[in-house]
Design a protein around this nucleic acid. Structure first.
Lengths: 250, 250
DNA sequence: TTTACGTGTGGCACGCAGTGCCATAGCCTG
DNA sequence: CAGGCTATGGCACTGCGTGCCACACGTAAA
């Protein structure tokens, strides 16, 4: 701590912090902690930085760090909690007649949007999580919560089918994997590539694998008729593939 | 973090190996530690059990625990390191003309086999990981390493395609999700259900989504015919839903 | 046998993450 | 001004994980 004298209270250079917005606005201490943490993480490494280093640089007490972040890893992902809440709300507000797979893809795009809002921050964090095994493990648990949110929504919509929960889990995993593939590609390019286009392309692939309507199917060519004939009792996946093939060959 | 247990010796995580304490098994201490840990975890909880409790029950020094397990979590998954090595070797030994998706499904079955070798131990561990968030996070990192092994293999086989890495990531995620869905279903049934059949069914579904030839489709019930008529350009998922409905109402 | 060396083990102390408890300073309401 | 509420800081404590050293045992060499 920089408190050289025994004078209680705030005597550090920045006294403007606490006075402002106790209600409504974002607490400045949280932002200060994130800024101090990332500055130290980038200049000396994550594991070489202790909580005491962070709070000393931010000019706050050690105990306050854990009031805003339950663990050291959480300071690296300061906005995922809000994003997860947004995704849950988005899925809960889905219209009943929406295509579930397309809806889940749109929900995944919310995560991309959060990353794209702060490209520099996202790229820095990507470099950190790639190097530090502990952060990679923590990121996995974060991604897992997104995936569970998608799967729970899909279970609600596909629950009636015989293998509803299986389909829900697999589709959610595929959507998350496609999203992450495009996201990591974008992060590796230092945020230069078009993230939206890459994710759209990846999600379209995942969507196409599960019989969803990938993009706007470009409603043209009406009047055409496709007839599918199948044995009753045939494996459903074969029928689905036949349908897809019939629709694809134009 | 990455448990690089250098203990050579074939052990397979069976908790019932306490008998060979004398001089038979290669590392009796490892087995003793696993047995003591699980006994305490089950009777008083994971977080309520300290390393000192475990080593006291096992009758060894505290320092020795960390010689056999890099962290407290590792003692819960004593055999995954070997299983991951088996999977990597299995994939590396794949014939060139094998169907990559089918090969990856077979690799996933290796994990099921490991779980099925010790049903009681697996069910106990499942109950632990379901309750303790820290163990769940650790399990995610373990599963992630399996998924990466599958994805790396697929990238080698599908690398020539334009979206090879995307397809590899998505297929690996789908296969893992399908496998885990069936595995958890089996674990929830206390190991009573047929694990092999459930995993075969789940993997067949995942395989069918990616154009693989799933498996012997189990020919049955020929003769019945279903006819589906749809407008070309109609949302594909609606058509799929119609097909499913037609197959369901018998 | 003695000596030297490698190996497995126990003991000890330390750093650091995370938590509980309490004191204090500010703000709002009475 | 009194009282309550909230945010913050300051400890002290538990527990995981690590580094270092000492010791006991087996084996090979002198």
């Amino acid at each position: 701590m920089s408190s050289s004298s025994a004078a209680p209270g705030r005597e550090d250079g920045n006294g403007a912090a606490a006075a402002a917005d106790a209600a409504g606005g974002r607490p400045p201490m949280r932002e200060a902690l994130v800024a101090a943490a990332f500055r130290l993480f980038l200049e000396r490494g994550y594991e070489q930085t202790t909580i005491d280093d962070i709070v000393a640089l931010a000019g706050v007490g050690r105990r306050s760090f854990f009031r805003y972040f339950p663990s050291k890893e959480d300071v690296v992902f300061p906005d995922h909690e809000r994003c997860l809440a947004d995704m849950t709300a988005f899925l809960a507000a889905s219209p009943e007649d929406a295509d579930p797979v397309a809806r889940v893809c749109d929900a995944a795009r919310l995560v991309l949007r959060m990353y794209a809002e702060n490209p520099d921050f996202s790229v820095q964090r990507y470099r950190l999580t790639k190097k530090v095994p502990g952060l990679r493990a923590y990121e996995l648990s974060v991604v897992w919560r997104y995936e569970r949110a998608l799967a729970e929504y899909l279970r609600g919509r596909l629950g009636g089918r015989p293998d509803g929960t299986l389909e829900a889990d697999v589709i959610a995993a595929a959507v998350v994997a496609a999203h992450n593939n495009a996201l990591r590609s974008w992060l590796r390019s230092h945020g230069r590539k078009d993230a939206g286009a890459a994710v759209d392309h990846a999600l379209r692939y995942a969507q196409s694998a599960f019989g969803g309507a990938p993009a706007p199917p470009s409603a043209d060519e009406q009047g055409d008729v496709v007839v599918v004939v199948a044995r009753r009792g045939a494996p459903l996946w074969q029928v689905v593939r036949e349908v897809e093939a019939a629709f694809a060959d134009d």
